[in-house]
Design a protein around this nucleic acid. Structure first.
Lengths: 197, 197
DNA sequence: AAAAAAAACTAATAAGCGTTAGTTTTGTAA
DNA sequence: TTACAAAACTAACGCTTATTAGTTTTTTTT
């Protein structure tokens, strides 16, 4: 019978969480069962509880891992001494890369955060709101310095965030379009539009 | 005891489906229970089955109502004798309006279609793919006629679709930003970009 | 090799699920 | 007012859920 095989630096808990990310993405958190997760890991369901506390705890681990990654990267970009358009470009590219490299985790964080329990739910939502506000602040600076059009900064930021989030639908076109074309064309469209001059 | 109160032209089945749209949006299809739905409608759970066949049937009704609305509108736009940018603008504005007027239904169709049962699942996905292809065809024509930049049409279309889909997050900012500003700024950004000339 | 710790197993629990059966109430038409 | 149909009710079924208890196997440490 198959055992949990942790790699060099991955604990069994991390293996379970990675499997759960894939399972939760495909089935959704509520529809996914611990028995399904156990089968994916290669173990009986009760054995999972030697490594994790509960189903909900797994969701917490996934959501906050993603949230932390985005927060850390934004903090780094905020301190950069470059113009606003460059900052926005960096952010867009980072979102795209997160989507490519941590597809399952980002998807789950985007879709199933509502199933977090308190106080994790409130904490997560607070972090999201804060993230949006920091992006809006960047955009507002760009407008002030006349680098950006005078559009509603909230609209711009959420349009950008939504657009990159839409990369969820891209996994199935992954083979047809290179990541470079994807990144460049998306940055181009969001920052400069699609209308020919 | 409260009864199901159908309006002039709304059957009790429609009342149930509308309540289910709100419930499924807030709780997610899998997490939502028939007992919760019954309470929202003001009835005991088994009474629902005098009007609907199953929980799954409700999801089907929601998803295909939304799919039909988008398909019909796109068909109308396709026959219009206007330039490509105008067509894309119409499509974006229609998506925004659908999001504003049928928020719950569109949200559920976007999030919970994966819980449709066969053959409805395959049918729904086929319609989605077809919809995307028709949008790509419009964008390709725009590139051919030099109305649009030579960007990857798939990237452009899915960026647009994703951006308008992101209006899901907008309900909470509804009071701060008028629909007109929202529509105009979003169209402006997606078609002409945010960078100042 | 023996002892201790970690992690697997089987069995079972209480709770909640969608749904059905059977009955009673309500609304409508003759 | 009586007859009929629609739609509500209560009770319950069979199934699945996450999780716990108790035991055995495997791995690690001494």
């Amino acid at each position: 019978m198959a055992k949990i095989k942790p790699g060099k630096n991955t604990s069994k808990k991390e293996v379970i969480i990675k499997s759960a990310s894939v399972l939760f993405r495909t089935r959704g958190f509520s529809a996914a069962t611990m028995r399904e997760l156990a089968e994916a890991v290669g173990v009986e369901a009760p054995s999972l509880y030697n490594h994790i506390g509960s189903k909900s705890e797994i969701l917490q681990a996934i959501c906050f891992k993603v949230a932390n990654a985005f927060n850390d990267q934004l903090a780094a970009i905020e301190t950069q001494q470059v113009n606003t358009i460059s900052k926005l470009e960096h952010i867009i590219r980072f979102h795209i890369q997160m989507m490519m490299n941590y597809y399952d985790e980002v998807f789950v964080a985007n879709h199933d955060w509502k199933h977090l329990e308190e106080p994790y739910l409130s904490n997560f939502l607070m972090q999201r709101r804060n993230y949006e506000k920091r992006l809006v602040a960047i955009m507002e600076e760009g407008i002030r310095k006349k680098e950006c059009k005078n559009l509603n900064p909230f609209v711009v930021v959420l349009t950008m965030l939504s657009a990159v989030r839409g990369l969820e639908f891209w996994q199935r076109h992954k083979k047809n379009i290179s990541v470079k074309v994807l990144e460049d064309d998306m940055v181009n469209q969001l920052l400069k539009g699609i209308t020919a001059k």
